[in-house]
Design a protein around this nucleic acid. Structure first.
Length: 363
DNA sequence: GCACAGA
DNA sequence: TCTGTGCAACGCGCA
DNA sequence: TGCGCG
């Protein structure tokens, strides 16, 4: 493939960017409880505009008092304080992943827009990666949110949630985890999501598959299965479908695979494997969401999946307490964690285990 | 949130 | 100087 | 061939 060289003043990344020596040193502490929480913005509390210097980079911040979440009163400053505080936990999950910017410059109740092309107006220290678009006919310079200054810059632009690919820029066609997406209908409470997640947990345990559950930050849940390098999205999607169909067979009255929203039962949990595709995005662990209350996509321990689990409890205001207590419960899903699974091996294990039995069918 | 075009 | 506008676009299943 | 869908 020809070396893509779209003109850009940004630092273009054609291979995965490598951490500096000091960042490598620090990374040993990452994921440990209470470590690396950086506190709120280093800025006077009454400042409405300002400039912070983070990692030797000066970032301009504006309209800090603007209310982004009217029902709870959370402001842009609250979002920036949170982002600065948890950056060491969130950034590893964003590293080198092309980002689709979803911008809410006037808050969650006002018009928003997508932005993929970084354009020529971002500061030169914002890293980007050129990726083919429209069937290889053109390139888009995607933002890579690889450091704290970039994170704060994006939040200042109105990026409330972060939406990143399941692959990294150097290998855009190779997902490094499988996404199991649990999406409850409007009349399905979170208790149903929990029961379906427990069914998925039983399937994963039966075949010794490693998975990390998290709230989506909205109404559903995500379960992430770390992948060894070299898998395709076709493979990750097929595997997600297999696991979800096995789980659905255990709780058929709680689940649906109906694609059309109009025809989909409103009181069931839609199990979506189609999200495993190139260019599709997911809010990573610790991403805030543009929902009332400033909820956060929050990694969980499996044992926390109880009837009383309420995902609206996890917000930008209180998430640091969980990080102090538990550290990064999803750190095992990071590409460097060494837990990448070979789908061929998992499928062999599943096939052997089921060989004497009939094939399971039905969603 | 911000650059840009057109009035 | 003000005001309006753009800021994305994949591939699958089905009619 | 287009639409709904995430």
């Amino acid at each position: 493939m020809a070396d893509p060289k779209p003109k850009s003043k940004h630092t273009v990344v054609r291979a995965d960017w490598q951490p500096t020596a000091s960042q490598r040193r620090d990374s040993a502490k990452r994921g440990a409880p209470g470590q690396r929480l950086l506190g709120p913005l280093p800025l006077p509390r009454d400042a409405v505009n300002g400039e912070v210097t983070v990692d030797t980079v000066a970032v301009k911040l504006s309209n800090l008092d603007k209310v982004y979440f009217p029902s709870s009163g959370h402001t842009k400053r609250d979002l920036l304080d949170y982002s600065h505080d948890v950056a060491e936990f969130m950034l590893p999950h964003l590293l080198n992943r092309p980002a689709t910017l979803k911008r809410f410059p006037q808050g969650i109740d006002r018009p928003w827009f997508f932005q993929k092309e970084a354009g020529e107006h971002m500061p030169p220290w914002v890293r980007t990666a050129p990726l083919p678009s429209k069937g290889e006919r053109t390139y888009i310079n995607y933002v890579l949110c690889n450091d704290c200054p970039t994170l704060l810059y994006l939040v200042n632009l109105g990026c409330i949630d972060h939406n990143v690919w399941m692959s990294r820029a150097a290998t855009p066609d190779q997902p490094d985890f499988v996404l199991l997406d649990l999406d409850p209908g409007p009349d399905a409470g979170f208790d149903k999501v929990v029961r379906v997640a427990q069914a998925i947990r039983r399937v994963l345990e039966k075949y010794e598959i490693l998975g990390f559950p998290k709230t989506s930050g909205a109404t559903g849940m995500h379960i992430l299965l770390p992948l060894a390098p070299g898998h395709s999205f076709a493979q990750s999607s097929r595997f997600a479908e297999i696991v979800l169909r096995l789980a659905a067979a255990e709780v058929p009255d709680l689940t649906t695979d109906v694609w059309s929203v109009a025809d989909r039962p409103r009181d069931r949990v839609f199990l979506d494997f189609r999200q495993n595709a190139p260019g599709k995005t997911i809010p990573p662990p610790y991403s805030p969401r543009a929902y009332p209350g400033a909820t956060v996509s929050t990694p969980l321990q499996w044992k926390e999946l109880t009837r009383s689990l309420d995902p609206s409890r996890f917000t930008i205001t209180n998430l640091r307490r969980r990080l102090e207590k538990y550290g990064d419960l999803a750190s095992g899903n990071l590409p460097g964690a060494g837990h990448g699974q070979q789908l061929r091996l998992l499928l062999e294990r599943m096939h052997q285990s089921d060989a004497p039995q009939k094939k399971r069918r039905a969603f």
